[in-house]
C-alpha cells in the first residue's frame, strides 16, 4: 500500500485515494471542432511508461481534492505531489 502525500492534508495511506489517470491529458475545449484522431487520442490512447509518470489522484476519503503526483510506475516511488495550480 502506497503512502501518498496529499498537498492539502499530508501523508495518508493509499486506501484514502483513488487514481485518476494521466495528468498530461488535456481535454479539448468545449465547442471546438476536434478531428476524430485528436478525439480518439484524448478518449482512448494513453502512454504506459515504465518509470516517471504524471498522474491525477483524488483524495476521495479525505478532503476530496484532485491533485497531481509524479510516480515511478516500476518502483512506485512518488517523487512529488502538487496542487493542480502548481508544477510537478
Amino acid at each position: 500500500m502506497l503512502e501518498i502525500k496529499c498537498p492539502y492534508c499530508g501523508k495518508r495511506s493509499q486506501n484514502e485515494f483513488s487514481y485518476g489517470g494521466d495528468a498530461n491529458i488535456k481535454r479539448p475545449k468545449l465547442g471546438d471542432e476536434v478531428s476524430t484522431k485528436d478525439w480518439d487520442d484524448f478518449v482512448y490512447f494513453r502512454d504506459n511508461p515504465r518509470g516517471k509518470h504524471s498522474e491525477f489522484w483524488h483524495h476521495v476519503s479525505g478532503c476530496r481534492q484532485w491533485f497531481k503526483a509524479s510516480r515511478d510506475t516500476a518502483t512506485h516511488e512518488i517523487f512529488k505531489t502538487a496542487r493542480l495550480d502548481e508544477d510537478l
Binding site: S18, G20, R27, F56, H58, V60, R64, Q65, W66, L84, D85
Partner: peptide, 17 residues
Amino acid sequence: AANVLSHLEFYLQVVWP
C-alpha cells in the same frame, strides 16, 4: 452516487477550474 460526485469534482477542479 459516489462516482457522479467524483466526476463533477474532476471537471470542476481539473478541467474547468
